[in-house]
């Protein structure tokens, strides 16, 4: 199956209908990401340990439509948390999804919460 950008649409915290249990927090590397599957979606989840925050976004890089963002490095630019695609280092804000170093389409971002040992991602369907 070749991925389709329209599968991914940002979800705001108020619109969450499903909190999907993605896995135990311990499975996510410190200051790094991992990928999970939810229905037909691939979602990258980042454990931004330094900021004690979690972020989630589509795993699909809109540049060349590859499922790779979870393997990218995370970081921060002008106070914005961001992820750099491992293929060509396009960077995206983990808050707004905006492409920070170019004019690619924004990526979809999703709310994340941690309860107990587990990480949950919010979806609207």
């Amino acid at each position: 199956m070749i991925a389709n950008l329209s599968t991914y649409e940002s979800v705001q915290p108020d619109n969450v209908k499903v909190w999907f249990k993605a896995g135990p927090a311990s499975k996510f590397p410190k200051n790094g990401g991992a990928c999970i599957k939810y229905k037909d979606k691939q979602i990258a989840i980042f454990n931004f340990t330094r900021q004690a925050t979690w972020y989630a976004c589509q795993n699909l890089c809109p540049h060349k439509m590859e499922m790779v963002l979870s393997r990218g490095m995370i970081g921060e630019e002008d106070m914005q948390p961001k992820v750099a695609c491992p293929l060509h280092k396009n960077t995206f804000s983990l808050k707004t999804g905006k492409n920070l170093n170019g004019s690619l389409d924004a990526i979809a971002t999703y709310p994340v919460k941690v309860e107990g040992e587990f990480v949950f991602v919010g979806f609207s369907e």
Binding site: M73, E76, P81, K89
Partner: peptide, 8 residues
Amino acid sequence: GHGCEVCK
């Protein structure tokens, strides 16, 4: 700050 794909 918290680093980036250049300094890491």
